Amino acid sequence: MITISKSEQRGQANFSWLDSKHSFSFGSYYDPNNMGFSCLRVINDDVVAPNGGFETHGHRNMEIISFVLDGVIAHKDSEGNVETISTGEYQLMSAGSGIYHSEFNASSEEPLRFLQIWIEPNETHTPPSYQQQNFGKEAGLTPIATPSGENGTFRIKQNASLYQLVLKPNQELNFELLKGRNLYVHHVEGALSIDNNQVRGGDGVKIQQSNNVQLKNEGSENTLTLLFELP
């Protein structure tokens, strides 16, 4: 079963320094029928103005992934991590028993765009941890986060996996799901079809009760997509 949520259906928040689109209920956008999917709780597409950002704030018992689409994040947290996360890089912050952090656009001239993703953990009150890596942009399926942290992936505290999918023009991929597993697709850019359903940037696709999902690049440019394999 496939359920497609179009980009224009996302919730929105607009401030002087932030333009954010919410795939699921978040902040002032509330839809009791759209509180997440499985353990996936938040996908926010954030555009932050030059020098703008999120002041120091706290999180607890949440796996928080940031994926920078354009620009650089300046990150500081209560565990002593002071980092910059550049275009193409991923960050996983396991909030665990509690962590405070700030995120700012490191540029005084150019906007920052990144995806903010929250996944509910299956381990709670654990020590906070921080991971950061650029996994490249090679064509095909690249694992980003896995429960075991195998093969250089982030270790995520949930029985879930995150993949980056890049397809060249006319390239396709069959993604196999074990029985009882779910798939959420967040499409970032390019002309993609999912089981012959056309999707575009910002669309979200819930896939349940399916063993095989076909994804195909229908355009003339590479596509970029995030796939969440979920319990």
Rank of each mutant, 00 (worst) to 15 (best):
M1A: 11
I4Y: 07
S5G: 07
K6P: 00
Q12P: 07
Q12V: 12
N14K: 15
W17Q: 12
L18D: 09
S20N: 02
H22S: 05
F24P: 02
S25L: 09
F26L: 11
P32F: 07
P32G: 11
N33K: 14
S38C: 11
L40T: 02
L40S: 03
R41E: 07
N44K: 00
V48L: 01
A49W: 05
A49M: 09
G52C: 06
G53I: 01
E55F: 01
T56R: 12
R60M: 07
E63N: 06
V68C: 06
L69G: 06
A74V: 01
E83V: 00
E89Y: 03
S94W: 03
A95W: 03
S97A: 09
S97G: 06
I99L: 04
Y100E: 14
Y100M: 15
H101L: 04
H101C: 05
S107A: 08
R113L: 06
W118D: 06
I119V: 15
E120F: 13
N122W: 02
E123N: 12
T124F: 10
H125P: 01
H125L: 13
P127E: 15
P127M: 14
P128H: 13
P128T: 15
P128E: 15
N134K: 03
G136F: 10
K137I: 08
E138A: 15
A139E: 11
A139R: 12
L141Q: 05
T146R: 09
E150W: 04
F154D: 00
R155A: 06
I156R: 03
I156E: 03
L162F: 03
Y163G: 01
L167C: 05
Q171W: 00
E172Q: 14
E172W: 03
N174Q: 12
L177S: 10
L178Y: 12
K179P: 09
G180Y: 15
G180S: 08
H186P: 02
H186I: 09
V188N: 14
V188D: 11
E189I: 15
A191P: 00
D195F: 12
Q198S: 15
R200Q: 15
G202K: 11
I207F: 08
S210G: 04
S210H: 10
N212P: 00
N217K: 04
E218V: 00
L224M: 01
E229I: 04
L230W: 00
P231A: 10
